[in-house]
Design a binder for these strands. Structure first.
Length: 490
RNA sequence: GCUCCCAUCGUCUAGAGGCCUAGGACAACACCCUUUCACGGUGUAGACGGGGAUUCGAAUUCCCCUGGGAGUACCA
């Protein structure tokens, strides 16, 4: 077999969507597994919806996910340019070739005429197919229309191509993931390949680009299945080799509709902003439609590539549920080396003055607060009590903990006993253990004892390891907070 | 409307005729651990959409129904 070459061809009309990311991933995996090339092509034929900002977002997101391309707009390659808008001069040649071979014809129909045809079809409850009324225009007729100032579009002649290459109007192909797929080409209708403004339509541009870029396998979403039949016919009419196709199920929102903004984040960059790790995201998305042969679900992209077989990919749609993604993200956060975690958390700590802590204290703070994090951004609300002189005590905590007699006794006792403690973790651990034991003798549960201390120092009833918190804050600050929580006898 | 695709626990899935009284993961619940929250550990509950057919035997094959998704542009 010739070289495996796959591509991802996003259109920059928005930020990189997670669905596109998954398609990119599966292409990448397929390329890696088969020692092939992974190509990035930007399909920006529709100038109005395209923006440089989106192009940058696509590049950045793909890179962040670790899906590096071998050829693309920025890195170049032997079959460039890799941006469709820079290839506009090459499409007309091939359109002309199709015209010459009789597989395409000029169409002078106006939008109004076309609209009327469609209207009629819906009225008669018939499926709309183009009437082909421009198929057999004479040169004289065309000249006349041209003289009127009408610019023709070019349509592909389905029936001609079908008859030239197939016995039946039923066209079949063997899909890499779904198996044999078929379609009656008689139902397709002669579609436009070159718009009257001289730019190619999607279905034409893809074929020309895939052909010229020597793409061997086209792996994409199943929303392209019906396009595939059109594209196969174009490949054949051009005398080009038809690539193999593989169509992936769609990613759906929990309500089974298309994943869109109203369901939350859809772009990879939005997930990153929310505090998701790209490693977790890509791992999660890989599991949508694919499962590891050894049952181990936490895997790097390279590990997945070793185990990847395109025909093992599920052909059904899958629902994007946050539960598992969240679990995976917290898992990846736990796995992150401490130094890296410290850096990645900083963007979410801008409201605090990190200079209040030494590097060692910051390290310890991260160590003891990382456990319950689901998102990196969760750190923001997990650490306010490490900063500032005083703490904000939640009203409920004030009423239910600090205002109780038990708590007041605990705190008074704590102040008294801790006067001569050294506030390093080791000492604190020992002393606190003994401290709890004293109160236990009095019938006060260890956790009640600690609640009092925790409430006074952090203003909360839950949080990180109390010993470490006291050590980080230091004796002076800890005691000041506790003293101010003690009600003076009136 | 027409065409195409899909169908196993709530979700992602394993399963390619007997290994399935259907396995795993997430979520849920219970218990254990414990200075709180969590982590972790151990358990519990939970599915082959329905109906036919083939077969000694079907989650696995075929047909119908139902449900869901997609396509139907001079968008991509």
């Amino acid at each position: 077999m010739s070289e495996v070459r796959v591509r991802i061809a996003p259109s920059p009309s928005g930020n990189l969507h997670v669905g596109t990311a998954r398609t990119a991933l599966f292409n990448y995996l397929f390329a890696k597994k088969n020692n092939g090339k992974f190509v990035l092509r930007i399909e920006d034929t529709d100038a109005e919806r395209t923006s440089q900002e989106y192009i940058d977002n696509i590049f950045d997101s793909l890179k962040a996910l670790g899906l590096n391309w071998d050829e693309g707009p920025d890195v170049g390659g032997p079959y460039g340019p890799y941006t469709q808008s820079q290839r506009f001069d090459i499409y007309p040649k091939y359109a002309q070739m199709l015209l010459d071979k009789g597989f395409a014809y000029e169409c002078f129909c106006t939008p109004e005429e076309l609209e009327a045809e469609k209207e009629l079809a819906t009225q008669n409850k018939k499926p709309y197919v183009y009437s082909k009324k421009c198929e057999n225009l004479t040169e004289a007729e065309k000249e006349k229309l041209r003289a009127e100032g009408r610019k023709p579009a070019i349509r592909f002649n389905i029936a001609k191509a079908q008859k030239a290459f197939h016995d039946s109007t039923i066209l079949k192909f063997d899909d890499l993931v779904k198996g044999e797929l078929h379609m009656d080409t008689a139902l397709l209708g002669d579609f436009v390949i070159m718009k009257s403004n001289g730019t190619p339509t999607y279905n034409f541009a893809v074929v020309i680009d895939d052909m010229l870029m020597k793409i061997s396998h086209v792996i994409r979403g199943e929303d392209h299945i019906s396009n595939t039949f059109k594209q196969i016919l174009i490949f054949e009419a051009l005398g080009a080799e038809v690539p193999r196709f593989g169509h992936l199920g769609m990613i759906l929102a929990p309500d089974r509709s298309k994943l869109s903004k109203r369901h939350g984040a859809t772009a990879v960059s939005e997930f990153v902003e929310k505090g998701y790790l790209t490693d977790a995201l890509i791992n999660f998305v890989a599991l949508l439609g694919w499962s590891p042969s050894d049952g181990k679900e936490i895997k790097t992209v390279d590990e997945i590539a070793q185990d990847f077989r395109i025909n093992d990919v599920s052909s059904s749609n899958s629902i994007f549920e946050y539960d598992k993604l969240n679990w995976m993200n917290s898992h990846y956060i736990k796995m992150l080396p401490i130094e890296e975690l410290k850096e990645r958390l900083k963007p979410y700590l801008t409201k605090y003055n990190l200079n209040e802590l030494t590097d060692a204290q910051y390290t310890r703070m991260v160590e003891i607060t990382r456990e319950p994090l689901t998102l990196l951004s969760d750190i923001t609300d997990a650490v306010p009590y490490f900063f500032g002189e005083d703490v904000e005590v939640e009203p409920k905590v004030q009423a239910e903990i600090l205002d109780t007699e038990v708590a007041q006794n605990v705190l008074k006792e704590f102040v008294k006993q801790s006067k001569d403690w050294s506030f390093d973790e080791e000492t604190l651990h020992e002393k606190l253990e003994a401290f709890r034991a004293q109160f236990k003798e009095l019938g006060i549960k260890p956790k009640v004892t600690m609640w009092a201390v925790r409430a006074a120092v952090t203003g909360r009833t839950c949080g990180a390891d109390m010993t470490a918190i006291l050590a980080i804050l230091g004796k002076e600050k800890s005691l000041r907070r506790i003293e101010s929580a003690i009600k003076q006898p009136v």
